[in-house]
Amino acid sequence: MRTAALAGVVVLLAGAGLYAFTVPPRVPVGTADTGAGDCTVSARTVPDRLAPPDEPQVAFSGDVPLRMSFSPDGSVLAVSQIDTVTLWDWQESRALARIDHESSAVPPTPAAFSPDGCLLAYGSLHGAVVVDLATGGRRTVGEERAVRSATFTPDGSSLAVGVQSDPDGRLLHLYDTGTWELEDRLYGSATLGSIRYSLDGGVVAGGEDGGGVTVWNTGSSSPAGLVLDRAGVGADAFDLLPDGSGVLLIRSGRVLLVDPGTGEVVREYVPESDGGVLVDVAYSAASGRVFAARLDPADGAGDMVAWEYGAATEVALGPDLPSVFPMALSVDGSRVAGLRTGTGDIAVYNTDLSLLNVLTG
């Protein structure tokens, strides 16, 4: 889910126009107030308890699941594995912190930064763990349930948690970040492996483990829409447009833009060539493009494909495109990070897919 309430101004290009969105910073009770603009882990000394090892892991097997996510300002990349989260200054290829924890669900939940960058949340088999990056202190919310996904609301007031089970079928739980008390439970049809919010926080979408995408209007406990018939891809292989008006998903070898309220297909993004199976999709606000990763199931090779959002025309990205899966986009959509399937390392690109850096330690 896109982490969100940025302290300051977030500018994004959404389809036909340029929008500016401003949110005041909010410091939840019990967290360190380190001052506006000075709360990312790269801007201060990391507490000893979060110090990374001398030789952080930089090579990964495609058989071992991992997930990635950017900090709100895009300077830090979180690499989540089953039992650890490592924070990287990707521009300097330097490990900043490592957070060890008990095994999470498989695949691991992507770590979610709070809008001010002060907190980091991730799911575990016993609730959602919230880490204060200034002190290294931790708290667990909803510890009676396994958590498959977690993210902060755009204004930072709540932590949204996708739970493995709920006796009433309310599978999306919301916790107040001021008190850390449960404030609401929303109905769902299946466990949510990933959660996205619209930029203004008015719409939330959850990718179901069974293949559907459930959409709620915030303030209502019942879903506003359910999009079914996705291809057999992971729960996080979808995206919600910044204004909440549409869901991007994979179906029948193409990417579809679907109206979540009606289920109507608004637009189709079709690859011009057969380069493999589409496995992930994301919208880049900075470039106004739709990106998809694809893999060849026979040998694991693959590449990336992109389309202009409005025209649905494929973009010529040049030769030797990387095979990047899983992938993650920065909050502003200007950076793409992913595991390179050919080399087993993690790389960061711009939206023309020009290489910016590789994590080497």
Rank of each mutant, 00 (worst) to 15 (best):
V204S: 08
G169W: 13
Y197F: 15
S149M: 06
G188D: 13
D168V: 13
R148T: 11
V213M: 05
G127W: 05
H126I: 03
R170E: 15
G136V: 09
G156L: 01
G201T: 11
L182Q: 12
D200H: 11
R196T: 08
D176K: 13
T214K: 01
S157Y: 09
G202A: 15
A150Q: 00
A205I: 12
D184Q: 14
D184C: 02
T151H: 08
V141M: 08
G162A: 06
G162V: 06
G202V: 02
S165C: 00
G169I: 12
E183F: 07
L125V: 13
R148A: 13
A190C: 13
L159G: 09
A134W: 02
A150V: 15
A224Q: 10
Y187F: 11
L171Q: 05
L228N: 14
T140L: 08
D166L: 06
T214I: 14
T151S: 14
G206F: 00
G225Q: 03
D209S: 10
S165W: 07
E144H: 07
L192K: 03
L125H: 07
T151R: 01
D229K: 14
L174W: 06
L174R: 12
Q164T: 04
Y175T: 09
V131F: 07
G207N: 10
R196G: 07
L186V: 04
P154I: 09
V161Q: 01
A190P: 01
G137L: 09
L226M: 14
L174S: 09
S221A: 13
T191E: 12
G202T: 15
S198F: 05
V215N: 09
G225N: 11
L192F: 08
V213D: 07
T135G: 11
S158H: 08
R138V: 12
D176P: 12
T151W: 04
G156Q: 05
S157A: 15
I195T: 05
E143F: 10
D200W: 11
E183K: 11
G212K: 04
G136E: 01
W180A: 06
V163C: 10
T179S: 15
S220P: 05
P167G: 06
A134T: 10
V131R: 04
V130D: 12
D176H: 12
S194T: 11
V204G: 01
G188Q: 09
E208P: 01
T135P: 13
T214N: 08
G169M: 11
L186C: 01
D209F: 14
W180L: 10
R230Q: 03
V203F: 03
V161D: 04
E143A: 14
T153E: 00
R145V: 15
P154E: 10
V215E: 06
T151M: 00
D166N: 14
G169A: 12
S194C: 12
G207K: 05
V204F: 04
E144G: 04
L133M: 07
G162F: 09
L199Y: 02
G127S: 10
T153L: 02
S158G: 00
T177E: 00
A205E: 06
L228Q: 15
P223L: 10
S149F: 04
G202N: 10
S220C: 01
D176C: 14
S189L: 04
P223F: 10
R170V: 00
W216A: 03
V213K: 09
G156I: 01
